[in-house]
Simulated assay, not measured.
Amino acid sequence: MKLTPVTADESAYLAADDVVDHTHPLVRETAARLRSGADGDTAAYARAAYEFVRDTIPHSADVEDWRITCRASDVLAQRVGICHAKSHALVALLRAEGVPAGFCYQKLNVLHGLIAVRLPGSRHWVRQDARGNKPGVNAQFRLDREQLAFPVWPEKGECDYPVLYAEPHPVVVRALRQATGPARLWQLLDTAL
């Protein structure tokens, strides 16, 4: 899928903010540990960061752990989050090592969060879905084509949003910060962008 960045300023896709707090010591420490196993290869680092978030931070619904995380450092500290929170952590880890990354979304039964990455030398952003695998879900880090957790079904009103955001969408941040439990969280995310 071709993504349209919200800004042509690539530095926006490397920036830290309150949610993508890639200057936080835990984010920096985790990034450094992952980078040490990548032998200086940016693609290998991006894959390691992706697989770390996908495989070691469970999706809240899969483990029925409803501590609602939002900030990247909190996701890494509490080791749990929904797709949006996991996306925040992955983008922070990528940006901590100078890899441009941003946020993109799908409208499924609720709003689903993904990221996109652009490796040095590439002109294209490639979406990645670190939601976490389970039976029926097999998302993989791929640079040649997308292998996301969920296909969209337009006949059911689902869609891929073609916009690449430099910051998490305010609707998502508000939902994660206001929800007091899963029912309220899904209600807040039952929206279109």
Rank of each mutant, 00 (worst) to 15 (best):
L3V: 05
D160N: 06
V20K: 05
L94T: 06
I82S: 04
L188N: 08
V80A: 04
P100E: 07
I68L: 09
R47K: 15
W186V: 15
N109Y: 10
P154D: 01
A46R: 13
I115G: 07
L176K: 04
K107G: 07
A89E: 02
A130Q: 10
V91T: 13
R131W: 14
K156T: 01
A139G: 11
P170Y: 11
V99D: 02
T191I: 14
R33G: 13
H22R: 07
P162Q: 02
F141N: 08
A166K: 10
A96K: 02
P168Q: 05
A49V: 14
S36H: 11
P168Y: 15
A175E: 02
V173T: 14
V117K: 09
L193D: 08
L114H: 04
T56W: 07
V6G: 02
L76R: 06
I68T: 03
G136R: 06
R174F: 02
T23K: 01
L90F: 01
G121R: 12
V152E: 01
R127C: 10
G37N: 12
V163T: 09
A12C: 03
C104A: 05
A46F: 13
I57K: 06
P168E: 03
E167D: 03
V99Q: 06
R142Y: 09
D190N: 14
L90P: 03
R145F: 15
P5D: 00
L90A: 08
P25H: 03
P154N: 03
V20D: 00
V75Y: 04
Q78N: 10
L188F: 09
A16T: 08
A77M: 05
Q140G: 11
A16P: 00
N133Y: 00
V172R: 08
F141H: 07
D190I: 13
L26Y: 07
A38E: 12
L114M: 15
H59G: 01
L76S: 04
P5N: 02
D39N: 15
A96P: 00
G40S: 13
Y105M: 05
P5M: 06
Y13N: 08
I82F: 14
G40W: 10
A77W: 04
E158S: 04
L34D: 04
D55C: 09
G121V: 14
R67C: 07
V171T: 14
Q178A: 13
Y161K: 09
S60F: 12
Y165F: 15
A16W: 00
R71P: 01
V27K: 10
L94H: 11
A43L: 14
A116S: 05
L164Y: 02
T7M: 07
A46E: 13
L3F: 00
P170T: 04
P162E: 03
Q106D: 07
K86T: 09
T23D: 02
F103K: 05
G121F: 09
D74R: 13
G102P: 06
N138S: 15
A43D: 10
G132F: 06
R47V: 14
I57D: 03
R67K: 09
R127N: 06
K156S: 02
G37C: 15
C83N: 13
W153G: 01
P151R: 08
G136H: 04
E97I: 08
E167Q: 08
Q106I: 10
G132V: 10
H88M: 05
